[in-house]
């Protein structure tokens, strides 16, 4: 099977600091992968490179067999790459359903015409219905017409994932989707991931390995900008180098 995403010696330097160092990451169609690593190990930077937030200092990125290294972010979205942000990023000044309009109408030919994009009201049946469907998926349909600023952090996170899903991606990149959530909300997000993961490939960055071990088929461990080890989650977690980098410090902390 060919790779959906692959990177060749991908490197990102921030004057002096090498945040991502010659990373060769690959993901297959439909695969669910996890990336873990300590703070500042370059996980978010890797996502930023994949999604085109900034260009790499060196290396190449291939997506669906095409070199996308120099392609701007909005075109990568068009090709089927969607992402969320580590700090939840939704549009607070819009209502909840309005947050979904832009991603929803991308897939409606008739809504793409100049007339309906620029001059017809956004609030019309076929658009709102689809937005509501996306909201139902994450259980927010009751809050559709609330101001987004009134949502809780967990609800905003759900909304952000709903936006990602409504982009009908071939791969969805989730940057720490569980951080800052209560145990109950974490359950909700994991349940959602279980429900939708069959439709596309998924990459999840996470701090708490235990939470995602059950979901991911492949685990990569990053440290200081490099991929330390990757493969089957169980095996990776048994790797001494990983234990050293990941648990080592904690054990030290415990013993002292």
């Amino acid at each position: 099977m060919s790779d959906l995403i692959s990177t060749q010696d991908l490197t990102k330097r921030f004057d002096g600091l090498v945040a991502v160092n010659q990373v060769n990451f690959s993901l297959q169609e439909g695969q669910v992968a996890g990336i873990i690593g300590p703070n500042g190990s370059g996980k978010t930077t890797l996502f930023n490179l994949l999604s085109g937030f900034f260009p790499p200092s060196a290396g190449r990125i291939t997506f669906c067999g095409k070199d996308i290294t120099k392609i701007p972010p909005h075109k990568r979205v068009g090709m089927g790459m969607a992402r969320t942000f580590q700090l939840v990023s939704v549009f607070d000044s819009l209502t909840v359903w309005e947050n979904l309009v832009l991603s929803t109408i991308r897939f409606k030919r008739d809504q793409q015409s100049v007339q309906s994009f620029f001059f017809a009201p956004a609030r019309k049946r076929i658009v709102v219905d689809d937005c509501l469907k996306s909201l139902e998926l994450v259980g927010l349909e009751k809050k559709a017409s609330a101001r987004t600023s009134e949502l809780s952090y967990g609800e905003k996170r759900m909304l952000e994932i709903a936006i990602g899903l409504s982009l009908k991606p071939r791969v969805l990149l989730l940057d720490e989707p569980l951080s800052g959530l209560s145990d109950h909300e974490i359950g909700g997000v994991l349940d959602l991931i279980h429900r939708v993961k069959k439709n596309f490939a998924l990459v999840i960055i996470e701090h708490k390995i235990s939470k995602i071990v059950s979901v991911v088929k492949k685990l990569s461990v990053m440290n200081e900008g490099k991929i330390l080890c990757e493969g089957d989650p169980e095996q990776v977690l048994r790797d001494p180098a990983v234990r050293e980098c990941y648990w080592g410090k904690e054990e030290e902390n415990c013993s002292t």
Binding site: P73, H74, V77, R83, F91, L94, R106
Partner: peptide
């Protein structure tokens, strides 16, 4: 909606395609 979104967070709008 698009231009109001740009006001709030232009980068995010790029990642909506």
């Amino acid at each position: 909606i698009l231009i109001r979104s740009i006001k709030e967070d232009e980068t995010r709008v790029k990642f909506l395609g």
